[in-house]
Write a protein that binds this DNA or RNA. Structure first.
Lengths: 177, 177
DNA sequence: ACCATAGCGGACTATCGGTCCGCTTAGGAA
DNA sequence: TTCCTAAGCGGACCGATAGTCCGCTATGGT
């Protein structure tokens, strides 16, 4: 890869990350604004990332690799493992609110076709099956993941209502009981 | 109100309802398409409903008044009342998938500032408080409502995974237990 | 029958995501 | 160091969309 290409790639990712976190709403961040902030032409972005979804997914994968990759499997009960998994997702979305809001709004507005979702869902189904049996495991996994959707995280950040992580633990333990 | 205004209002509401249910994705339904289908000019729509959100909210309120208004309160336990409430919401969103998908995608993508949401949340908080106490009631109510979000309803309609209403009953009973 | 005006509607604007192609420059070869 | 080729750049451009505006129409009270 040519040096200027790599340099521009990093500049674009840094620019979009900053703009997403600064904006109230991800839709306010236009591709033109990203190009201007990165100091590159708009064509460079679309050539390097395909389209808006590709740019956001690339940044997301990047941040996931940084924050979520080191998973020391502290062996526990399925219930505790689910609590830990969902807590990790929640805090990740708190730390990357703009990015995760944008990600869940792409894919024609539904987060259910992102590659990461299927993986999380499958893991949760496995934990639920081991913890309480297979009845309704698919739906319950969806429901638990719905409780950590980024716009709910954002909503509770703006108008707090108790301790969400405590509520999340409570929810998971009830489901597994 | 002049007769032509009332006539156009009904034509627009009928057109947008039809187009939303026919479309795979609510974003495919443009305001131009609604105007053409209703046989009116685009200005007529924006004068009568303000903007896209206003049009969708008006249609939603209309349908809610038709389908959800007659609430015969079959007095039961808080848990059963919550099951009934959420089941009613689920089936409403199944019956009006295009409309509810569109509604939850307006409001800058978050359903949490719709007037109807606060009402449902308050009702659920009350039921949860009576059924299991006030701890985490706010969060748990949000989580239960997240389990009936329209894009999850739609996702499970497209790729079924067990009986969602059975799963929903299961979830609510666990939360209340 | 008349006419003031509520209401109409489509041309217009602003802005967006995405495309395209002539120009620039990186970086291996000689 | 020089040269040359193609990888890469970037901004003018396009099509679509939500929303605006204003000259015209037709409603319904007088």
């Amino acid at each position: 890869m040519r040096a200027d290409k790599a340099r521009n790639r990093e500049a674009v990712l840094a620019a979009v990350a900053r703009l997403l976190e600064e904006a109230d709403d991800p839709d306010e961040v236009s591709m033109d604004a990203v190009a201007a902030a990165a100091g590159v032409g708009k064509g460079t972005i679309f050539r390097g990332f395909g389209d808006r979804r590709g740019l956001i997914r690339t940044l997301y994968d990047d941040r996931v690799a940084q924050s979520l990759a080191p998973t020391p499997p502290t062996a526990e009960s399925p219930s505790d493992a689910a609590v830990e998994l969902l807590t990790r997702v929640w805090t990740f979305k708190e730390q990357h609110r703009g990015l995760t809001l944008a990600l869940e709004r792409e894919g024609q507005g539904s987060p259910y076709q992102s590659a990461g979702y299927d993986r999380l869902h499958a893991d949760l189904v496995s934990l639920i099956t081991r913890g309480r049996g297979p009845e309704n495991a698919g739906f319950l996994a969806h429901a638990l993941l719905a409780a950590v959707r980024s716009d709910l995280v954002e909503h509770l950040r703006r108008q707090p209502d108790g301790d969400p992580l405590a509520g999340l633990r409570d929810l998971v333990r009830q489901v597994f009981s």
